[in-house]
Design a binder for these strands. Structure first.
Lengths: 189, 189
DNA sequence: GACTGTCTACCATGTAGTAGGTAGACGTAG
DNA sequence: CTACGTCTACCTACTACATGGTAGACAGTC
């Protein structure tokens, strides 16, 4: 039990640190202080910083995959799904954080390859999900399909990521949702 | 002459490094290697990393301000201005970089306040410019004004920033322009 | 002769990571 | 029931190296 708790705590705190300071800037010392175990003990759970980093992304990715599946299954209607997607994303940034993969992308050239690949996978996954949902909406006639679903997907993902960046810099998380809804309005056929 | 050249070289290389690895990850050692002077000599031009950091933002900001002014003056028509804005922005990311302030925003909690303020200023400046141009287009009837200019401005800035992040992670800079044009299509009254 | 730009040589601190040990939990064999 | 070996989670104490930054010398230029 202790093991699982500590490991989860390490993952959670590391994610928090990465999403506010970036991967390069956070250190085992920071982490040790917050979790309340010694620096060396962290190595027992995650032998290297890279291992910790990939584990953080994996857990984040897992959470998103689960949510995307639930969302696709539960919600009815393309517009409703897309709105719920935005809500979920925005909720994950509530308390003044960056989206994990946005934060990581900035340090990309410094990241170990294993982490770069996961970040890439994260975005590909989101684009694929959005594209599918939108394509569904187009073929069902619920939304207007003047352009390929891919184009809309890319726009929506970009607006969410970008709004997070701007919101974080301006210290005003309330601007994210309206920006997304504005972009979404384009699909209201 | 030597001084100016070296100083400019330092600024340029530092910008490049920040835009690929982030502020926290780049070091005086990296910089010294690229510019070809010793680490200690960098301190002659920029006494601290913070001073270098703020100088990099200032020079970046200056360039953008100049371009925004030219753009506002030279181009005719709101749509043309907005398209030119996107072109300029996209051009600055051509060779696989992040936009400077996007890269910096990710490390925000780690940055000295002086840098945070400048990043904030950068985004405010862009939002103000976009808002003004759009408002102009609305009042002249060139574009549709169903929503306040502010909302469109935020969407356009977000989409550019976000597309840069995604492009950088996917290592495909060609996706930026279409994403922006897609968002822009909403203003085509 | 002062100033500028660079150098070598250094420093204190922080970094990820290692070595080796300890205290307790757990199962198993006598 | 107890004694033994093993495993887990953590510790203290350390290493090697990178970090931003400093001191002071030296050559060239105005």
């Amino acid at each position: 039990m202790a093991q699982l708790d500590t490991k989860q705590a390490l993952l959670a705190e590391a994610e928090q640190l990465i999403r506010t300071m970036g991967y390069a800037a956070f250190s085992y010392a920071d982490l040790s202080e917050r979790v309340g175990i010694r620096k060396a003990s962290i190595h027992h759970h995650f032998p290297t910083k890279e291992a910790l980093g990939t584990a953080v992304i994996d857990s984040y990715l897992e959470r998103f995959v689960a949510e995307l599946e639930t969302l696709a299954a539960r919600s009815v209607g393309t517009k409703h799904k897309l709105r719920a997607y935005g809500d979920f994303f925005a909720a994950s940034l509530q308390d003044k954080k960056m989206p994990l993969c946005g934060a990581l992308a900035a340090d990309a050239a410094y990241l170990p390859v294993s982490m770069q690949q996961r970040v890439k996978k994260f975005f590909e996954l989101h684009l694929a999900w959005l594209e599918e949902v939108i394509a569904e909406g187009i073929s069902s006639g619920e939304i207007e399909g003047g352009r390929p679903a891919k184009a809309y997907a890319m726009m929506l993902l970009s607006v969410l990521q970008g709004a997070s960046v701007v919101a974080w810099a301006l210290k005003d998380p309330t601007i994210i949702k309206p920006a997304y809804l504005q972009a979404l309005a384009q699909l209201a056929g």
